[in-house]
Simulated assay, not measured.
Amino acid sequence: MEARDLRVSDAEREHVGRLLQRAVGQGMLSLGEFTERMDTALAAKTRGELNAVLVDLPGMQMDPAYTNVAHPSVVPAPPSGVPSPPGAVVGTPTVATPPVGVPAAGGHPTQQPLVIRGRMSTITRKGRWHVPPALILDTRVGSSTLDFTEAVMQSQVVHLTIDDYCGSVTLVLPPEATADLNDVDSVGGSVSNKVRTGPPYGPLHLVVRGRVRFGSITARYPFGTTLRRMLGS
Rank of each mutant, 00 (worst) to 15 (best):
Thr139Cys: 12
Gly81Leu: 05
Ser73Arg: 11
Ile116Cys: 06
Met60His: 13
Val102Asn: 01
Asp63Ser: 11
Asp56Gly: 08
Ala88Asp: 01
Ala105Arg: 07
Asp138Cys: 04
Ile123Arg: 04
Pro113Glu: 00
Asp63Leu: 11
Trp129His: 04
Trp129Met: 10
Val90Pro: 00
Ser73Gln: 03
Ile136Trp: 10
Gly91Asn: 06
Tyr66Glu: 03
Thr97Leu: 07
Val100Gly: 01
Arg128Gln: 15
Val75Met: 07
Thr139Arg: 12
Val55Leu: 15
Gly118Ala: 15
Pro85Ala: 00
Met60Ser: 09
Pro72Trp: 12
Arg125Val: 09
Gly81Thr: 05
Pro64Lys: 13
Pro103Ala: 09
Val74Pro: 00
Val90Gln: 04
Pro109Gln: 03
Met62Asn: 14
Arg128Pro: 01
Pro85Asn: 00
Gly91Arg: 09
Val89Met: 14
His71Tyr: 03
Pro79Tyr: 11
Met60Pro: 02
Thr110Ile: 02
Gly87Phe: 11
Val75Ala: 07
Leu57Arg: 13
Gly107His: 05
Val131Met: 05
Val95Glu: 08
Val89Arg: 14
Leu135Glu: 06
Val100His: 10
Ser84Asn: 06
Asn51Phe: 07
Val55Ala: 14
Val69Thr: 10
Arg117Ser: 06
Gln112Cys: 05
Ser121Ile: 09
Pro78Asn: 12
Thr110Gly: 06
Pro64Gly: 11
Gly59Gln: 04
Val131Pro: 03
Pro93Val: 03
Ala88Thr: 12
Ile123Asn: 02
Arg117Ile: 05
Ala65Lys: 15
Thr92Pro: 01
Val82Cys: 00
Glu49Asn: 11
Arg119Ile: 14
Gly106Tyr: 04
Gly107Thr: 06
His130Tyr: 08
Pro76Arg: 05
Ala65Ile: 09
Arg117Met: 07
Ile123Leu: 15
Val89Gly: 00
Val69Ile: 10
Pro132Ala: 05
Ala65Trp: 13
Asp138Met: 09
Gly81Met: 10
Ala96Tyr: 00
Pro103Phe: 11
Gln111Met: 09
Pro85Met: 00
Ala88Gly: 03
Asp56Met: 14
Thr97Phe: 01
Val75Leu: 15
Val102Tyr: 02
Thr94Gln: 11
Asp138Phe: 15
Pro76Cys: 06
Val82Gly: 00
Arg125His: 15
Val74Ala: 04
Thr94Val: 08
Leu50Asn: 02
Thr94Ala: 05
Met62Thr: 15
Ala77Val: 08
Ala134Thr: 10
Gln61Tyr: 09
Pro79His: 10
Gly107Ile: 08
Thr122Asp: 13
Gln61Cys: 12
Arg117Asp: 01
Ala77Gly: 00
Pro86Lys: 05
Pro98His: 03
Ala104Trp: 08
Ile123Asp: 01
Pro79Cys: 00
Pro64Ile: 14
Lys126Ile: 02
Ser84Thr: 06
Gly91Ser: 03
Tyr66Cys: 02
Ala104Asn: 01
Ile123Val: 15
Arg119Asp: 08
